[in-house]
């Protein structure tokens, strides 16, 4: 069987390299890159462009005592400890925001066993965790802006194929999709949206203002 790897498009990686994405999108990109070495290598390429731009700049005039001040800052500093690989299912950037791994998430029920937890919001953009019970469908929805869905545990299937741990789906308002969690294991996703989702079904639409989906 062919395995489809779903990763981030270049414009989002370059946006992350340049530092122009909203915070919730930064979180999803950093988490995806933690799980996907191909995205990590492509991101490093875009960061190399940033390094070349930096190196090519005409320098600004520094304060007279700039180097001395910096050396004074350094005095007494301890080198940053070597980072340890994260344990559990959440990579480090996500654990920092959640305050721990899966068991530290403060879930809110959405009914039918589905749960979500809001993580951060930056005006229009929001990041949240969503848990869909094994074999269940996420309510059909379309959205106004862009939506990034990164699988952390389990898998889901939609019109485009199967998404497993580390896979990311990037959808815009044109996509009208119905993700279904694969049987066997609950599916946990990290999702960033740049606006509130618009549901197509009647009941979920009524529920939308209450659940903040």
């Amino acid at each position: 069987m062919q395995t489809i790897r779903h990763t981030l498009p270049d414009d989002l990686l370059m946006g992350y390299a340049a530092g122009v994405l909203p915070q919730p999108f930064d979180l999803v990109v950093a988490t995806h890159v933690s799980l996907n070495d191909d995205a990590r290598a492509r991101l490093a390429g875009f960061e190399a462009v940033g390094g070349a731009v930096l190196d090519d700049m005409d320098g600004a005039k520094l304060a007279e005592d700039s180097l001395e001040c910096t050396l004074a800052r350094i005095a007494g500093m301890v080198p940053e400890p070597r980072p340890m690989p994260s344990r559990g299912i959440f990579p480090t950037p996500l654990q920092r925001v959640v305050g721990g791994d899966e068991d530290a998430v403060r879930w809110k029920s959405l009914g039918m066993g589905a749960k979500q937890a809001l993580l951060c919001s930056d005006g229009e953009a929001t990041a949240r965790l969503l848990l869909i019970p094994a074999g269940q469908a996420m309510p059909a929805h379309s959205h106004r802006g862009m939506e990034m869905t990164l699988v952390l545990k389990g898998a889901f299937r939609d019109e485009d194929g199967i998404y497993a741990r580390g896979d990311i789906e990037v959808a815009d308002q044109q996509v009208d999709h119905t993700p279904v969690a694969e049987p066997g294991e609950d599916c946990i996703c990290l999702i960033a949206t740049d606006g509130r989702l618009k549901f197509n079904g009647l009941l979920p639409r009524i529920a939308q203002p209450f659940f903040g989906i």
Binding site: G19, S34, D122
Partner: peptide, 29 residues
């Protein structure tokens, strides 16, 4: 990463921390 690339990433992250006032999420090292 070249040294220029590495310094760029440190500068970019500190810029976001300071100018946008949130700790930028960085990939696991």
């Amino acid at each position: 990463a070249a040294v220029s690339t590495w310094i760029f990433t440190i500068a970019r992250n500190r810029k976001i921390d300071l100018l946008r006032r949130y700790a930028r999420p960085e990939p696991e090292d």
